[in-house]
Design a protein around this nucleic acid. Structure first.
Length: 415
DNA sequence: TGTCCACTGGAACGTACGGCTT
DNA sequence: AAGCCGTACGTTCCAGTGGACA
């Protein structure tokens, strides 16, 4: 019953407190505003490129480059939804399908998604990729449309699964009779060209568009526009706005990050029942976002990745080698009562942890004493402790004392 | 100058699983 | 039910390597 009272207070406070937000949805990154400041040029260019579909002609394939949070996705969705509306007006059969390749995860699922958008439902497993592609092709052709496929974060999929599927896709028009396809590829990586078959590349980038990062003053304008819609008037201080844009500008002009910061700063301020959002709230928001990201990443690790991370934690050195970590990992597995993975596999897991920013792993050569990775924890020890303490399974090994194996002792001497 | 360490990291393959088609 | 599929996760094999040391 104590719990009930607490919750009652929480809810009452929430409802009665001063409201800083007018509409917090506006600050989410999937929100597409009516106005995209500093992207007028790109909007116009992309508009010109896709306009031919209004006259029943296929538009060129387009390749869009730019780092995260430079407005590629927003501009593309903005232009294409306007195009669709305009097409209705002119009676042109135009349709577009947006797929985020990174989120979707595999070639199979990308084709399944495309199929669904032309009214063909596909089971989530069981078919071959060729079969799914074929079904997509057939149902697309029967639907008689000018179909624009937007493949966002296409670099992620190509790097992981190769570009064979892109070859199929770029040649699809040769087998279509009643429909036509144009492809818009969006990549965060400017070097994607290196990973692509030249035939695919030339076909895909009939046109190219590059999105430069926003600078601090541009980010400031973007935030200002959005804040007018999202916050009550006079609740956002100038200094908060400036620091948000400065922080995001320092991180390659990422508008998405700037919007996140602003939204979380608003939430922090509201929780503290402040009357306005200040610089301090933004700084707290930054810590908050990072904290949440790490906790989330830690909780979602697989058991063995957790054990590897705990090995780094237990070794508690400024930099440990792969071999040392493997020894500790073996001990922990024994203590935990699970089978051990090979050192090769552990190497891959360390690489993954590095990519997530949970550890820092650098390949170094120690000359006569071989080549290895130097690995250290990249997050605070207390945070690791907190997260794993919350999971009862790890109680026994959280206070485990590492026995230094002979091998590790030898390594220590040499380094 | 060549040797040799302690790995790295690519590639091919194996296994378990859920789920399809026929 | 048989045969095939994609996905996730793992193993096995092995060529390659930066640089301290003899």
């Amino acid at each position: 019953m104590g719990n009930e009272n607490v919750l009652d207070d929480v809810f009452d406070n929430f409802v009665n407190r001063v409201n800083l937000f007018k509409d917090r949805e506006v600050l989410r990154h999937d929100y597409i505003p009516d106005k995209l400041p500093h992207r007028e040029n790109q909007i116009r260019l992309l508009g010109e490129r896709v306009a031919p579909v209004l006259k029943d002609a296929r538009c060129s394939n387009i390749f869009i480059y730019g780092k995260t949070g430079t407005g590629k996705t927003a501009v593309t969705k903005y232009v294409l939804s306007h195009l669709e509306a305009k097409a209705k007006q002119y009676g042109a059969q135009v349709k577009f399908c947006y797929v985020n390749c990174h989120v979707t995860g595999s070639v199979y699922r990308v084709f399944a998604h495309l199929s669904q958008s032309v009214g063909m439902s596909i089971p989530f497993t069981g078919l071959s990729v060729e079969e799914v592609f074929d079904r997509f092709r057939v149902s697309l052709d029967t639907s008689r449309v000018l179909f624009i496929i937007v493949l966002d974060e296409i670099d992620a999929l190509i790097k992981e699964k190769g570009d064979a599927f892109m070859y199929e896709l770029t040649r699809i028009n040769e087998t279509l009779v009643k429909s036509k396809v144009s492809i818009i590829g969006i990549s965060n990586d400017l070097r994607l060209k290196e990973f692509l078959d030249p035939r695919v590349f030339s076909s895909l980038s009939e046109e190219e568009l590059v999105f430069r990062p926003y600078d601090a003053s541009e980010l400031r304008n973007i935030l200002l526009e959005r804040s007018k819609l999202s916050f009550q008037e006079g609740t956002l201080t100038d200094s908060a706005l400036s620091i948000c844009s400065a922080l995001a500008a320092a991180e390659h002009g990422d508008a998405r990050r700037a919007l996140d910061l602003l939204r979380v700063a608003g939430e922090v301020a509201e929780r503290q029942e402040a009357k306005s959002i200040t610089e301090v709230h933004v700084q707290q928001a930054e810590k908050h976002i990072e904290h949440d990201r790490v906790v989330d990443a830690l909780n979602n690790l697989t058991l063995h990745s957790k054990l590897v991370l705990l090995s780094v934690y237990h070794l508690n050195k400024s930099s440990a080698t792969t071999g040392e970590i493997y020894d500790v990992y073996n001990e922990l597995c024994g203590e935990f009562g699970v089978g051990i993975l090979t050192q090769r596999r552990l190497g891959s897991l360390v690489t993954e942890l590095d990519a997530m920013g949970l550890v820092n792993a650098k390949v170094v050569s120690k000359g006569r004493y071989g080549r290895t990775k130097k690995i250290r924890l990249e997050i605070s020890r207390t945070l690791v402790r907190d997260v794993f303490d919350a999971d009862g399974r790890f109680n026994r090994i959280m206070d485990y004392k590492v026995c230094a194996s002979k091998k590790s002792v030898l390594n220590n001497k040499s380094s």
